[in-house]
Write a protein that binds this DNA or RNA. Structure first.
Lengths: 226, 226
DNA sequence: TGCTGTTTTCACAAAATATACACAAATATA
DNA sequence: TATATTTGTGTATATTTTGTGAAAACAGCA
């Protein structure tokens, strides 16, 4: 049972992508490519990656903005590639959550070493302290408990699974089909509206924090919070 | 009983030290500073710290050497700070016992998150508790005995193992599979529900303190106590 | 070997949860 | 405004999961 890690390499230079892909595949990673930030954002929306390698200087959407965009709704580690000479002033205002940096020209070996470390760190970190907080709503993933204003509330398994999924994909529009597929499983052949019923129950459980669950008419639902 | 953790921040740049101190103190840590590796080594010799944050590039004694020196006689976790361009394959290729590293420029928030994780990891590693107490329930690990309101109760070996495991992992959601794997062993190929039966027996043994064992529907069980 | 305490399986009752459905409410469309 | 579409919600029913007692399998041991 080997969990193959998926990496997305984003760079407008095809040669860089090629080299990274080569080495990463050699190391046993699954690799996909994007040519610019926009494309990367779209790809990340649709599929789960374990790591994104982002060039800073790119057409359409630069690396920083892309990173910020990605981090809005997915918690994926990001390694930045910067050309030597490119300067980043904000030493401490740097709140966009980059996990590591590599300066071009880089040795692929070094990049791979960092990839390995970052992925490992992320996965161990997630286990250590997976906790989500939105105002007075806390979700303790390890304990599988949800608190509303500090008070533990009870939830059915489906409610919890649904909430967790919504939160993991917060600020993303999620269709009923997508929810059914990912929360219920691909082998669920029931009614679309089952989702609605569970959303209803979840909202009741969340009390005042039902506000985070937004209905997207004609589409589905969304957990909306920063 | 709050054990204040002591942190030593070692960096030649005063601004870095200042920022780290600020955030760390805000988080409730006690902070001391050193300007270079030599000074750090001396301070660590004289006083016990719970964590050392080490810059790599420093005058007199660099971060690597300093870390090696520290680890010679104290088992203190170390987080490394490295500047963007610095090569640090060595850091991971060679085993000098670094617990984590953060790349400059870093967000103080991120650094604090790592500090927290590393300290907790270390302390949970070291502390092999020999006695657990939850209200009137006492588990004497060395004697392998359990007391309910001061009275020794008898338990089968499996019951004890299960209880011990639950307690060690208290407040964590534990699936039946996980329990089977860790308490019964990876080579157990029996029924899932065996767990349920043992939980039942354990609950009976614990009497009023069965309340600590919580059923997580659709998931498993959890020992819930602070 | 036969005894004894332990572990595991199993079956069924009890409880909790998931689903479908009907109708109300809200929103969009003509 | 009337009508169609979509979502919210209460309720009844179906399904799943867990608790539990008892029997069977197993293990250690005199």
């Amino acid at each position: 049972m080997i969990a193959l890690h998926k990496i997305l390499i984003v760079d407008d230079e095809i040669n860089i992508r090629k080299v990274v892909r080569e080495y990463a595949e050699f190391e046993g990673y699954e690799v996909e490519e994007a040519e610019d930030g926009m494309q990367a954002v779209e790809m990340v929306r649709e599929r789960d990656y374990d790591l994104v390698i982002l060039d800073i200087m790119m057409p359409r959407l630069d690396g920083f903005s892309c990173c910020k965009e990605i981090k809005k709704y997915k918690d994926i580690p990001v390694i930045m590639l910067s050309a030597r000479g490119e300067e980043y002033d904000k030493l401490f205002g740097f709140e966009i959550g980059i996990d590591d940096y590599v300066v071009k020209p880089f040795s692929p070996k070094e990049l791979m070493a960092r990839v390995k470390v970052v992925i490992r760190r992320k996965s161990s970190e997630q286990k250590m302290e997976e906790k989500y907080e939105f105002e007075g709503l806390t979700i303790d993933v390890l304990g599988r408990v949800v608190y509303v204003n500090g008070e533990k509330i009870s939830m059915t398994p489906k409610e919890y699974d649904l909430l967790f999924y919504l939160v993991k994909n917060r600020n993303l529009a999620l269709s009923r089909d997508k929810l059914l597929e990912d929360v219920w499983g691909y082998d669920f052949f029931g009614d679309d509206r089952t989702v609605d019923t569970h959303i209803k129950m979840l909202r009741n459980s969340l009390g005042e924090y039902r506000k985070f669950i937004v209905t997207l008419r004609g589409m589905g639902y969304k957990f909306e919070a920063d």
